[in-house]
Design a binder for these strands. Sequence first.
DNA 1: ATGATTTTAGGAATCATTACTATATTTAGG
DNA 2: CCTAAATATAGTAATGATTCCTAAAATCAT
Lengths: 129, 129
Amino acid sequence: MLKNSKQREAVLEYLKGRTDHPTAEQIYDAVKKDFPRISLGTVYRNLSVLSEQHLIQKIVCENGDSYRFDYNMMPHSHFSCTKCGKILDFQAFDRSTEVQELEEKLHVRVSDEKTVYYGLCAECAAEEK
Amino acid sequence: MLKNSKQREAVLEYLKGRTDHPTAEQIYDAVKKDFPRISLGTVYRNLSVLSEQHLIQKIVCENGDSYRFDYNMMPHSHFSCTKCGKILDFQAFDRSTEVQELEEKLHVRVSDEKTVYYGLCAECAAEEK
DNA sequence: ATGATTTTAGGAATCATTACTATATTTAGG
DNA sequence: CCTAAATATAGTAATGATTCCTAAAATCAT
C-alpha cells in the first residue's frame, strides 16, 4: 500500500513543470530547494515508484549515461541530440499496424514501444557551419 | 590510423556468428577461449572502435543495465522481453516519411533511429499461464 | 630492419544506481 | 484523537558497468 509523501509529490510536481526530461540528479538538485535534507536515494526510489504507477516514464538514450524522466505519458517519441544531449518530444506515426505484425510474426506480446531518433538539433547543426 | 589487431578481429568474428546481441562481458568470456590474456578493457575499446566504424551497433534497453551489441547493420528494430531479457530482431516499417516530418518540424538533422518494443516473448508469455 | 604509432593487459578510477538501516512519517482502526 | 503496523526517509555504504591510465607489446610505413 502506497503512503503519501511530500518528497514524492515534489518530485512529480517538478517533472510536471518540465519538458526537458531531466536526470535524477537534476531533479534532486531542484527538489532540494524545498527539501534541503532529501537524499538522492529518495529521489531514485520515488522515480521508480512513479514509473511503476505509470505516472511518469523513464527514458534511455545512447549518449549520456543517465536515465532521463518524462512526465508526458501521451504516446510520443524522442529526438536526442548527439552533440548537446538535448532530448525533444516528437509525435511519431501510429505504430499499431507495426505492433500487430510484430506480435504475429514473433508470437510475442507487446506492451510498450520506444523510438529514439539521433542526430543534431537545430542549434548544434547551425554550429557545425 | 587504424592498425590490425587479432583481438579486434576475434570480437568482430564472434559477433558475426551471433544473433542474440551479447553484452561486452559475454563477448569477453567467449573471446577469452582463443585469447586467454585478453582484458575486458580491450573488448570495450574494440567494441567502441567497431561501432565508430559502423561495423557493429550498440543497443540500449531499459531492462538490464548493460549495452548489447549487434553485428546486423541492416535497418531493423528490436523486441526486448521484459521478463527474460532476450532481444529479438524485427523488420520495422520504413521510417523515411516519419524522419522527414521530424526534420521539418523540429529543424533537426536525423542520422540514426532506434525502435525498441517491450513485452513478453513467446516462451515467457506461455509461462504466464 | 627500425622507429613512430597504435594496441594491449592489468589494474585503478569513475559514476550512476541500488541496497542497507535506524529513525521518522503516514494512516487505518479502535 | 491514539496507537500500532506499515511505509518512507536520510545518510551512507555497496555494486557494477564502463572508462581511464600506463608500461610493455604489436603493427606498419619507409
